[in-house]
C-alpha cells in the first residue's frame, strides 16, 4: 500500500517543481511553461478527436510491432537455443546485428516505405526482437541438465521436451524480454513518428513543435510519459499472470 502512495508523492513533487521553476524565473517560462499551462493544453488536447486518432495510431503501431517481435523472438530463440550447432553458428551474427541501433536504419526505411506506418513497424520490430531473442536464448541455455537428461531417459519426443522442459524454463526469461521489448517498442514507435513523420503521437509532437506551440508540445510529451507508465505496469501485470506458478511470483512458498 505504501509503494503507490510514494510513487504518487514523487509525481506531485515533479509537478510542483515544473510549476515553480518557470514562475520563479529559474527557467524561461516562454520555453518551459508552468505545469498549469501545460495541463490546460493537455486538457484541450483530450477534448479533440484528432488527439484520440493519433493515440490510436501509436497504440496500434506499438502493439503490432511488439506482437511480431514477441512471436519471432520466442520462436527463433527456442529453435536456436535448443540446437547447439545453430547456436554456435548464429552467435557472432547475433552479436553483430544486435548492437545496431534501430534509429540507424531510418534512412533505409524512409527510402523503402517513406513516412508510412510500415517504416515505424520495421524499426519497432527490429529493436524489440533482439530484447526477446536474447532473453529466450539465455532461458533455453538455462534448462536444468538433470531435468533434460531425465526427459531423454524417458524418451520424450523433441516436441515433448520443448513443451514440458524447455518452455517452462524459458517462460520467465521471455516475460522479462516482453517487459523490456514493450518499453523499447514504445520508444522506437515515438521516435519513428517524430523523425520520419509516421502518423501518430510523435508526429503530433513534431507538428506542435514546428508550429511553435510550446505548451501543446509539452502536453503531448507528458502523454507519451503516461503511456510509458501504463505500458510498464501492464507488462508487469502480464508477467505476474503468466508466471503465477513460478517461485519468483508465488507468495505461498
Amino acid at each position: 500500500m505504501r509503494r503507490p502512495l510514494l510513487g504518487a508523492a514523487g509525481l506531485l513533487v515533479v509537478m510542483a517543481l515544473l510549476e515553480a521553476l518557470p514562475r520563479a524565473g529559474l527557467v524561461d517560462g516562454r520555453f518551459l511553461p508552468p505545469f498549469g499551462t501545460t495541463a490546460r493544453a493537455l486538457g484541450a488536447q483530450l477534448a479533440t478527436g484528432g488527439f484520440w486518432t493519433v493515440l490510436g495510431q501509436t497504440a496500434r503501431g506499438w502493439a503490432l510491432g511488439l506482437a511480431l517481435a514477441m512471436v519471432a523472438g520466442v520462436v527463433a530463440g527456442m529453435v536456436i537455443g535448443s540446437v547447439p550447432v545453430l547456436r554456435a553458428a548464429t552467435a557472432s551474427t547475433i552479436e553483430f546485428l544486435r548492437p545496431i541501433p534501430s534509429v540507424a536504419l531510418i534512412p533505409l526505411v524512409v527510402l523503402v516505405y517513406g513516412s508510412r506506418p510500415e517504416s515505424a513497424l520495421v524499426l519497432v520490430v527490429y529493436a524489440a526482437f533482439w530484447q526477446v531473442l536474447i532473453q529466450v536464448l539465455y532461458g533455453a541455455a538455462d534448462v536444468d541438465p538433470v531435468v533434460r537428461d531425465t526427459a531423454r531417459s524417458y524418451r520424450f519426443s523433441r516436441w515433448g521436451t520443448l513443451r514440458t522442459v524447455v518452455w517452462p524454463t524459458v517462460l520467465p526469461y521471455a516475460a522479462t524480454g516482453f517487459r523490456l521489448a514493450a518499453a523499447v517498442a514504445l520508444i522506437l514507435e515515438i521516435t519513428a513518428e517524430l523523425v520520419i513523420g509516421v502518423p501518430g503521437l510523435g508526429h503530433a509532437i513534431g507538428v506542435a513543435q514546428s508550429s511553435g506551440a510550446v505548451a501543446e508540445t509539452y502536453a503531448l510529451v507528458i502523454v507519451v510519459g503516461l503511456i510509458g507508465v501504463v505500458v510498464n505496469l501492464s507488462a508487469r501485470a502480464v508477467e505476474r499472470r503468466v508466471l503465477r506458478w513460478h517461485t519468483s511470483v508465488r507468495r505461498d512458498l
Binding site: 524512409v110 527510402l111 513516412s115 508510412r116 517524430l194 520520419i196 513523420g197 514546428s210
Partner: peptide, 16 residues
C-alpha cells in the same frame, strides 16, 4: 499529403 519533418527528406522521397 505526407508531412516530413525536413525539406531535405522530401527530395529523396520524390526521387525514389
Amino acid at each position: 499529403l505526407q508531412t516530413a519533418q525536413g525539406g531535405a527528406a522530401i527530395v529523396p522521397g520524390v526521387v525514389s
